[in-house]
Simulated scan of single mutants.
Amino acid sequence: MSDQPSAVDPPTGVEPDLAHHGDAEASAGLIDLAVNVRRARPPAWLADPIAATLTDLARYPDPAPARAAVAARHRRHPNEVLLTAGAAEGFVLIAQALRGVRRPVVVHPQFTEPEAALRAAGHPVERVLLDAADSFRLDPSRVPADADLVMIGNPTNPTSVLHPARTVAALARPGRVLVVDEAFADTTIAPGHPGEPESLAERRDLPGLLVVRSLTKTWGLAGLRIGYLLGAPELLSRLAAVQPLWAVSTPALAA
């Protein structure tokens, strides 16, 4: 692939296995922070309330309390939150609901599932490959101006690069959906910046912004499948329209 500043690379040649995950290689003594294998079980303070829901499975899940909690966490309105069965479902909803986009671009290195979901939905994906010699720093000018769907991770899996929020925000513009995968945002720290530095989760002023979050990475909940999307209500409504009913289980909502 070309590393010229203006290059946008369509997938060519021998393609990587987009379904390959690092946990397939993890073994005793190996810690892979890019996948959900670093915690044997969720902590008791989390596991116990989840287990308590098992006596209440006869009723359909009620997502309202969990949606309100997530909204409060990110200083948003509940209608700006869409709960999902993990971040992976969020990528599938985006790919399925936004079939009308003309030029989807994925910024790499990147978690493979966003591109895999786009391809499965028939999207002709283009890649912007950041340069290792430049420490994989993001240059917004490398993303084509007419790209109407852009997907990027921050911090990025597998490089662990944390792009400045202002740099990622520069990718937002009218007529474009900007998807920022922040599955690892709650693991980041920076001097003088408590919480989640460089996160866009609370930004409501950026047009077309969709932030993808996951609860499975930090808390050992890979088997429970729980995540959420943050964005404008009208955009989330398009995604919710293709989501199965009751996609998030009662135990997951308790988490």
Rank of each mutant, 00 (worst) to 15 (best):
A132V: 07
P114K: 10
A97P: 06
L130S: 13
Q110E: 05
F136Q: 10
A120S: 15
L130I: 04
V92S: 10
V128A: 04
H108Q: 11
A145R: 14
D148V: 08
R142T: 11
I94W: 01
I94C: 04
S135I: 08
P104A: 07
E126V: 07
F91M: 07
D134K: 11
V107I: 02
E113V: 09
R99S: 08
Q110C: 05
D146Y: 02
A117V: 05
V125G: 01
G100L: 12
Q110H: 08
R137V: 15
P144A: 09
R119L: 04
A133C: 10
P124N: 14
A120N: 12
R99N: 08
G122K: 15
H123T: 04
S141T: 14
H123Q: 05
D131V: 10
V143H: 01
V101N: 06
P124D: 13
V128Y: 03
R103G: 04
V107C: 05
D131W: 09
R102C: 12
R142N: 11
E126Q: 08
A147Y: 01
T112R: 15
G100M: 15
L129A: 06
R127G: 06
S135F: 07
D146I: 00
S135L: 11
A116M: 14
A121Q: 02
G122T: 12
R102F: 09
F111R: 14
R119E: 00
V128H: 03
Q110S: 08
L93K: 09
P144K: 11
R142K: 10
